[in-house]
Design a protein around this nucleic acid. Structure first.
Length: 428
DNA sequence: TCTGGGGTCCTAGGACCC
DNA sequence: TCTGGGGTCCTAGGACCC
């Protein structure tokens, strides 16, 4: 018996074309029109409405390579507006929480729901209820996949989104349907199998999720990392990946940006690194964490093979975990001077905070020269002002004023839900 | 001209120690 | 000059996810 019945029931819910759908929530005139959303720096396509997909605009395509398609197809183009998407996401997750005792928020637009014990309600009907509710209260269309493991729920969701018959909801808990479903899904579309493993598997004659579920265990174990075996067991209905409703605290915080066409000078690199550090430190305090290790990296544009290439990073350890922006900016600038070399066109820089610990665990060191309590009060005050009066109201001098290197965002929609200046205007 | 950003996990291999 | 095995820890790089 390849497919084990399990009592567990998971639903995987995600927003269809989430970012593009978010743009449509406050602009009903976009309905039925092709819409795309661009990455930071307006670099490439990160979301497409169904109509934009039909035009042949590929996910991840650099903006400039699809400019023609976009003009011909009269596609509406937006710069990413993550504040808006985050807010709509929070509303969606809040509603989903009312449908389950255990919710795992997996990404900005995806969640797993524990529906174990809900079978008597009719899982398909329950899924339709969820879908209707989210559509009604947020305006976001979603898809729902239901199955006995998270990997199968993902797969059910994948089919639900594509099949007209499913109408956005697929219940895959009954074993007799699983084989057929697995045969419909390309191996590369299975959760946990990416491009590389997908190609390798095809090389071995494994083309569908069904083929993969039938592969030999010992061969899998010696050919791939253990994560592959987990995926295969999950496809067979054996639970290996638990629902995580209590998210463990994150292990790293990264803030990085590319500079686009600009070639920053050393002083501009210094400013940008200071600004990224300040942003990372804000997120650190928001999560009530502290860091004792900071890494800075810079690199040239690897797409331009004809130019001299350079990429390096430097790690700075701090004696005591800290949340202080000024302390971190000092460390970051020290790291940058270590790795900076003249004569290169830098394309990207970033700051990583590592070794994160709960802020409550910070212990004063004997050799500590910083007055931590004073620094903490200052940071709290700065964060509060920036929350109340808008991000960037107060900033550190090291970040520079009106810098050239700030990213391009020429087509951002208003922050309808989070900014007083940008509320939707209703004409009656 | 123009190619995102932010995460996690796993493994291999080196350094080091006994 | 050649010669051992085993354990731990760390890091870099590769793979995956959204």
């Amino acid at each position: 018996m390849p497919f084990t019945a399990s009592n567990q029931v998971f639903a995987m819910v995600d927003g269809n074309n989430f970012y593009a759908s978010c743009e449509g929530v406050f602009q009903p005139s976009l309905k039925g029109k092709p819409v795309v959303v661009l990455s930071n720096n307006d670099g490439c396509i990160i979301a497409r409405s169904n109509e934009a997909k039909t035009l042949g605009i590929r996910m991840g395509a650099p903006f400039h390579t699809v400019r023609d398609l976009i003009q011909r197809g009269k596609v509406k183009v937006f710069s990413a507006n993550f504040i808006l998407y985050g807010d709509l996401s929070a509303r969606m997750m809040h509603l989903l929480g009312q449908f389950t005792p255990h919710l795992e928020i997996y990404s900005i637009d995806e969640a797993f729901l524990d529906l174990t014990g809900f079978q008597h309600l009719g899982l398909r009907r329950y899924g339709q209820d969820i879908k209707r509710s989210i559509q009604q209260w947020t305006g976001i269309p979603i898809s729902v996949g239901v199955a006995s493991t998270k990997t199968l729920a993902k797969l059910a969701n994948h089919i639900a989104k594509k099949s007209a018959k499913a109408n956005g909801v697929l219940d895959l808990t009954r074993p007799q349907y699983i084989e057929r479903a697995l045969s419909l899904v390309t191996v590369g579309d299975v959760w946990g199998i990416g491009r590389r493993y997908g190609d390798r598997l095809k090389g071995y004659g494994i083309h569908t999720a069904l083929d993969l579920s039938r592969a030999k265990d010992d061969w899998l174990m010696k050919t791939f990392p253990v994560s592959m075996m987990r995926t295969v067991l999950e496809l067979r209905g054996i639970n290996c990946i638990k629902l995580e409703s209590q998210v463990p605290h994150r292990k790293s915080i990264v803030v990085s940006r590319s500079f686009g066409a600009l070639e920053p000078s050393l002083s501009e690199l210094m400013q940008s690194v200071a600004a990224y550090t300040a942003r990372a430190a804000e997120r650190l305090r928001e999560a009530q964490l502290a860091t004792s290790m900071l890494s800075v990296f810079i690199r040239t544009n690897s797409f331009r093979e004809y130019l001299p290439q350079y990429s390096n990073s430097a790690l700075i350890e701090l004696a005591v975990p800290t949340q202080s922006t000024s302390e971190l900016i000092q460390a970051a600038q020290k790291a940058l001077t270590r790795i900076y070399r003249e004569g290169y066109e830098y394309h990207k820089a970033g700051v990583m905070l590592l070794n994160l610990v709960p802020a409550s665990q910070i212990q004063q060191s004997l050799f500590d020269t910083v007055d931590r309590q004073k620094s903490e009060r200052l940071m709290t005050a700065i964060d509060q002002i920036n929350t109340d009066f808008g991000s960037g109201t107060l900033q550190f001098a090291a970040e520079g004023l009106r810098p050239r290197w700030r990213m391009k965002q020429e087509r951002r929609s208003p922050r309808y839900t989070t900014s007083w200046e940008e509320l939707a205007i209703v004409k009656a």
